[in-house]
Design a protein around this nucleic acid. Structure first.
Length: 993
RNA sequence: GGGCCUGUAGCUCAGCCCGGUUAGAGCGCACGCCUGAUAAGCGUGAGGUCGGUAGUUCGAGUCUACCCAGGCCCA
């Protein structure tokens, strides 16, 4: 039959239930007590791997895809982590959030595939591989490039495997068997193809840019490869004479200050600030042999005048007048005579401050980023003024001055050992000779050094490949910048502030530099004519497509190594150009941001299980500068729109004091430790309870709090499971037949349904988590379950209240396991399978339940809100009695509740107040109540007098009532319990037959 | 130094856009109860100068400015 042949029979052994032995009968075996083997203690670190193994066995990801076939796709495109090193907490959060999104979208009716990926090219891997070679006594330069690249590939492969395992351990469900990588041949082919699109639309060009360069290692360095050390530098004050000046200004000179005299040959401009006051100073007194002589007229910032006065040993001078730098136009280079025969313009610069120097900043666009940016920004103006905007290459890779450093060729800035060369002195001497040195000195300050060799680096101008931001891109005449800005407008950002951030960056972005002088990456697959500088493939070249196809086809077969293989130039150019020898094969590689900026092309567009554009990209807020931006630019340049509809960002990880995490500070939380100690579920729970849009705090105390929360939640599930052991389909009750309390719970569920769906769609998980957690703890454990324990345990088998409660528990269980499954993927699976075991069953194959809107009943909810405050007044009163030791359990009492308000009293109509208060009885009385009664200020008009319940205590339900013994057959029981036992006995007898 | 953002109980979060009763919730903590959710469950309570200072206003956690602390990105 029904209950008695359930999977775990809970009926007692054939018993001693003869009538004569009533007094000794064990009543608890006649109760419907919770029965479950769902353990209170989760043992997550052990259990999680079992659940993972099961998902693997049933092929969860593939089954999800199969079952979702034909539904609308929802594509969250994975931003590739770098395949280098073990996971840190940031990876864990990032992937967990993605997992929750794809799981929740899947359960809300979408087909939400998740294809993880990895970023495999680039510098950090090269370093590690180089280190490996160095340990074997080999130098990178001795190794053939493709051998080196092979080792890099193997290194990346190794870490992809490790990280994949680590991600899966977190419970992330995805296509782990078929992930994407930026180094797959197909990916390399498409990345090259995408780059060639820019070559062909005319925005790719060769320019130059200062990079940090280590002469010792003969290589460019990234910011991360540089550390700052204190050094003593030569400082000089230099005069730049005015070109055409009249009156007072005649013979005057603008004075600059610099700590790098060797950059003077590279000087092309002087920056000033429109916010600083400048003056003209005429020297009136100075020592005999001084550089600054009486009669010299110097222009500089007023607030820094004293600074120069001291440095230049000036004994007296007069401020003649104000000077507006904007009116000066241009000045002469201080080494004009040596061949620096050009106008040096004065340009307003926002970076100019009045803190050090003279308020005029020596600007050598090949030797500093600010200088470069200012120069580039002024390009149009320079050209209008007839000034050549080209940036000179004054220093070569070995630190020697080139021929463009007129008069200094062959002098050296830094030697192979990293020591200062003769360049500084040569420049200083030349300046003295030219009469343009005003003062010199020394300064102790921080200067960038190579992280590896610990030797100083220099900024030197190097040729690079750029993608123009402001050049028309084809027919519509729109520029990359404009397209990107429009695309930002069409994208939704979560949180909204992301839009400003990305927009600001795109607005001010200089041309996009895509080249790197490294080995491990996708090459910039173009050829440059040695004489004309023409680039192929290119817009004006007839056989561009043929060349492109050749390269792409080769890469698809052999990977990008084909570019570096012997005879590559011949191979690709044969029949494409008349004489391949006229062309140089570009051997720069692409910056990895270009690689990852192409994932939309080789993943979204390419895979049939995905779609373009993605619904959402989700990464840390640092990716506004990184992946969000490179993907946007790449897609706008080639496809005219963003590759995503929405951008979601998360914050960074700080310790419990809100400080940055670092290995050196010792405050870093390693995900593997958390997993080992508490389980991945706790990490997920932490992520879900936190506001991930901002910085996330994590640490031992916070994790402990999450473990506690987990236990509460788990126990609520356990209670449901225990009681649902008694649930049978035929006991089900229609909501219309249910008591009010049940209907109130259904109303809460309907409210939550809307809330949960809305917030999953808004990616606002913390709201969902807190709402569901509060519901489980506040509405269920402390209220509904507590009240209904009596009915669930004691009521007769066919009692409508018991059956209604069971029905509601069933509905609650269905809803909660589904709503929480995306977040607590392990525990909900465990709970679901505990109730519905089955070979290939899984909570994750379900959908969120359909909750009928008819369950909503605002009037009922308002009424129960009132009843709950009434209940609070009663529990408050009981607490006083308890303190006075007059009662223990609430069942010891039968309070008198005085209610003045008619509406409040009316709301109790048809209800048993004792049931709500969990007391043995309750009397509702109209009126204000006596003086000494208990009152709560927040529940006005209610007074409670606690009276001890009268009667006998029912041996089965423990309720005290005068009715106990009314049924002569069961002298120790109340009539309700007597009936329950009678049904129990009858059912057992029937089962025995 | 610049851009974007954050700062509400020990902890995690509501409230802030659209100023207005004694600023809420849960966890944790303290105390008590229960012993048929038991290494659980229930109740009661303590705990906040809403980062600081000025200002706007009859009135500011909510609006403005500045400052302090912190984060990301850039210099």
């Amino acid at each position: 039959m029904t209950e008695l042949d359930s999977k775990k029979p809970q009926e007692p052994q054939p018993s001693q239930s003869g009538n004569g032995e009533q007094a000794e009968r064990n009543w608890s075996e006649t109760l419907f007590l919770p029965k479950t083997d769902f353990p209170m203690k989760a043992g997550l670190p052990q259990r999680e791997p079992e659940i993972l193994a099961r998902w693997e066995k049933i092929g969860l990801y593939d089954r999800l895809r199969r079952e979702a076939e034909g539904r609308d796709k929802f594509v969250l495109h994975d931003g590739p982590p770098y395949a280098n090193g073990n996971l840190h907490i940031g990876h864990a959060l990032n992937k967990t959030l993605k997992d929750v999104i794809s799981r929740s979208q899947g359960m809300m009716g979408k087909d939400a595939p998740y294809v993880p990926g990895w970023d495999c090219h680039g510098l950090p891997i090269e370093w590690k591989v180089e280190e490996g070679f160095r340990a074997k006594g080999k130098n990178k330069d001795e190794i053939p490039i493709n051998s080196f690249r092979r080792v890099c590939r193997e290194f990346a492969e190794k870490w992809v495997k490790i990280q994949s395992k680590e991600f899966q351990r977190l419970g992330i469900v995805g296509d782990w068997d078929n992930p994407y990588t930026t180094m797959a041949f197909e990916a390399e082919a498409i990345i090259a193809r995408e780059l060639m699109k820019f070559a062909m639309n005319g925005t790719l060009y060769r320019g130059s840019k200062p990079v940090m360069w280590s002469v010792v290692e003969k290589t460019a360095l990234a910011e991360a490869e540089v550390e700052y050390q204190e050094v003593v530098s030569d400082t000089i004050f230099v005069k730049f004479p005015l070109v055409q000046a009249e009156g007072e200004l005649s013979g005057a000179a603008v004075v600059i200050w610099t700590t790098t005299p060797w950059t003077i040959p590279g000087n092309r401009a002087i920056a000033y600030s429109p916010d600083i006051r400048y003056g003209l100073y005429e020297v009136t007194a100075a020592p005999e042999d001084n550089w600054a002589k009486p009669g010299d007229k110097l222009i500089l910032a007023d607030v820094l005048a004293e600074n120069l006065e001291n440095a230049a040993r000036i004994e007296g001078w007069t401020r003649m007048s104000d000077v507006d730098p904007a009116s000066l136009g241009a000045v002469q280079h201080p080494l004009h005579e040596l061949g620096y025969d050009f106008d040096v313009p004065l340009l307003p610069g926002e970076h100019v401050t009045a803190e050090t120097g003279t308020g005029f900043v020596h600007t050598a666009p090949g030797h500093g980023m600010e200088d470069f940016v200012l120069w580039e920004d002024s390009k149009a103006e320079l050209q209008a003024r007839g000034i050549d905007p080209a940036i000179p290459f004054t220093v070569d890779a070995d630190g020697f001055y080139t021929e463009e450093a007129y008069g200094f060729t062959g002098k050296r800035v830094i030697d192979d050992k990293g020591e200062k060369g003769d360049a500084n002195n040569a420049v200083i001497e030349a300046l003295v000779e030219a009469g343009n040195l005003v003062a010199r000195g020394r300064l102790r300050h921080d200067y960038p050094h190579s992280w590896r060799s610990k030797k100083p680096v220099i900024f030197r101008n190097t040729p690079q490949w750029f993608i123009a931001m402001d050049k028309a891109l084809g027919g519509d005449g729109d520029t990359l910048r404009n397209r990107a800005l429009k695309a930002i407008g069409g994208t939704s950002f979560v949180p909204a502030a992301g839009e400003n951030r990305l927009r600001g960056m795109i607005e001010s972005k200089p041309d996009w530099v895509v080249s790197r002088q490294r080995a491990w990456g996708v090459p910039i697959t173009i050829f440059r004519h040695a004489e004309t500088g023409e680039v192929i493939p290119g817009a004006g070249f007839a056989k561009s497509e043929m060349l492109e196809h050749r390269i792409v086809a080769a890469f698809e077969q052999e990977g990008a190594d084909a570019w570096f293989a012997e005879g590559a130039k011949q191979r690709f150019l044969e029949g494409v150009v008349d004489n391949p020898d006229d062309w140089e094969k570009v051997d720069d590689i692409l910056d990895v941001w270009f690689d990852s900026g192409c994932t939309h092309a080789f993943v979204l567009e390419h895979r049939p299980d995905l779609k373009w554009p993605a619904d959402v990209y989700l990464e840390g807020s640092d990716q506004h500068r990184g992946w969000f931006q490179s993907s946007l630019l790449e897609a706008c340049g080639t496809r005219g729109r963003a590759p995503y509809e929405a951008v979601v960002t998360h914050g960074f990880f700080v310790d419990e004091q809100g400080r940055k995490m670092s290995k050196s500070a010792g405050n870093a939380v390693a995900p593997e430790n958390v997993i080992k100690q508490s389980g991945a579920e706790i990490l997920r729970l932490w992520a879900m309870s936190s506001d991930y849009w901002e910085d996330l705090r994590i640490g031992p105390e916070i994790l402990k709090a999450n473990v506690d929360s987990y236990r509460k939640l788990r126990n609520a599930m356990r209670f449901m499971l225990g009681n649902l052991a008694h649930y049978r389909e035929e006991l089900r009750v229609e909501p219309s037949q249910m008591p009010e309390l049940e209907r109130y719970m259904l109303h809460r569920l309907a409210e939550l349904d809307t809330f949960v769906r809305e917030n999953y769609n808004a990616y606002d998980f913390k709201r969902i988590f807190h709402a569901l957690f509060n519901f489980c703890v506040g509405d269920l454990s402390a209220f509904y379950f507590d009240i209904r324990k009596d009915a669930l345990y004691c009521e007769p088998h066919d009692s409508i209240v018991r059956r209604s409660a069971l029905t509601v528990l069933d509905i609650l269980f269905e809803a909660l396991t589904a709503w929480l499954a995306p977040m607590l993927c392990f525990t909900m699976e465990e709970a679901w399978l505990n109730r519905f075991p089955g070979e290939d069953n899984s909570v994750h194959l379900r959908q969120f339940p359909n909750i009928p809107d008819t369950w909503r009943d605002e009037a009922l909810a308002g009424k129960w809100k009132q009843l709950r405050s009434l209940r609070r007044a009663v529990t408050g009163a009981l607490e006083i009695e308890r303190k006075e030791r007059r009662i223990g359990a609430s069942l010891d009492a039968a309070p008198k509740v005085y209610i003045a308000d008619d509406a409040m009293r009316a709301s109790l109509e048809g209800l048993d107040p004792a049931e709500i208060f969990i007391t043995s009885g309750a009397e509702i009385i109209e009126g204000e109540g006596p003086e000494g009664a208990f009152r709560l200020s927040e529940v006005p008009g209610v007074a409670v007098e606690v009276i001890e319940a009268v009667g006998k205590k029912c041996a089965r339900s423990w309720k005290i009532s005068p009715d106990v013994g009314a049924d002569p057959e069961f002298p120790d029981l109340s009539p309700r319990d007597a009936e329950a036992v009678r049904q129990f006995d009858a059912r057992r007898a029937a089962a025995a037959e």
